[in-house]
């Protein structure tokens, strides 16, 4: 088995999505509605204060944060969770064991395809529409722009690991239906996807800021608008890498356990 197979999975997943073109339109429409709702909320929040910034953040910055932390960084993980969950539930996961490949790597490759598809067909169009209608701000500086790209890659990896770990839990729970709901509520609070951590009470911001979920949405978006200075960004990146390594180890350990369970107990 060559590594060349994994990019092929990415391409195949991308192609599979092309089969359902209507999903693209509903995706764009759904995200737009969601974005305009967030913009309306933040606009009304900012209109109640006398100054044009809240906690040092202006309204255009806040809208940019909402776009990044929402559609851009928080891609549709539920497809991944569902894929792992149903493969476990239906026993189709055995099919992947019949092929000379590593299942988590296969999942990463094929969901990179899904991610790229969503990025091109939903995220970029939504960002362009919001950019032209409401307006977005550029990165705080060149450093913040480049750091954002690095954090974005880390965010993708982090969300993949968190979701796959949760999906593998279906091995023990025999269903992933409730996990979707559970995960979403945790993410809403701890990832800062809707309310940024700087609006949290200090104690909660400290907790959330040190849990891996914050690297999915909060850190990349906050860095883009310049909420962290270069040394803070570097520290956050290092902690993020450590979390990434820990979660990767957890995933591989869990997969070994799951495989063992599958081959010993037959799923």
């Amino acid at each position: 088995m060559k590594l060349a197979a994994y990019p092929a999975f990415t391409a195949t997943a991308f192609q599979s999505r092309l089969a359902y073109r209507n999903q693209v339109w509903s995706g764009v429409f759904g995200e737009l509605v969601f974005m305009f709702a967030r913009i309306a909320i933040w606009t009304s929040v900012f209109s109640t204060v006398a100054s044009d910034s809240v906690d040092g953040v202006t309204l255009p910055q806040m809208i940019t944060y909402a776009l990044l932390a929402g559609p851009v960084l928080y891609w549709d993980y539920s497809r991944l969770l569902r894929d792992v969950g149903t493969a476990v539930k239906s026993g189709d996961i055995a099919v992947y064991l019949l092929k000379p490949l590593l299942y988590p790597a296969y999942m990463l490759a094929s969901h990179t395809g899904n991610f790229l598809f969503d990025l091109l067909t939903v995220t970029v169009p939504v960002a362009i529409i919001i950019g032209f209608t409401v307006g977005l701000v550029p990165p705080a500086s060149l450093f913040h722009g480049l750091a954002f790209l690095a954090f974005w890659a880390l965010s993708f990896g982090m969300l993949f690991l968190l979701t796959t770990i949760l999906g593998l839990a279906a091995f023990w729970l025999m269903t992933a239906d409730s996990l979707d709901w559970f995960f979403n509520s945790i993410m809403i609070l701890f990832a800062g996807g809707i309310v940024p951590l700087w609006f949290f009470p200090d104690w909660l911001a400290t907790i959330a800021g040190n849990l891996p979920f914050a690297w999915v949405s909060y850190y990349p978006a906050a860095i883009y608008i310049g909420q962290l200075d270069p040394s803070q960004a570097l520290t956050a990146f290092i902690i993020g890498i450590v979390w990434f390594a820990v979660l990767l180890a957890v995933l591989l350990w869990l997969w070994a356990k799951a495989r063992h369970r599958l081959i010993v107990q037959g799923g």
Binding site: M1, A4, A5, A8, T12, Q15, S16, D92, V95, K99
Partner: peptide, 28 residues
């Protein structure tokens, strides 16, 4: 090579040829 009568190994949304081509990569 393994065939399960009740489980599919083909990619549901893609032409048959694409599934075959994927196997070319998987098995090198």
């Amino acid at each position: 090579g393994v065939v399960f009568g009740q489980r599919s190994q083909l990619w549901w949304d893609l032409p048959v040829r694409d599934s075959f081509d994927l196997n070319r990569h998987i098995y090198d």
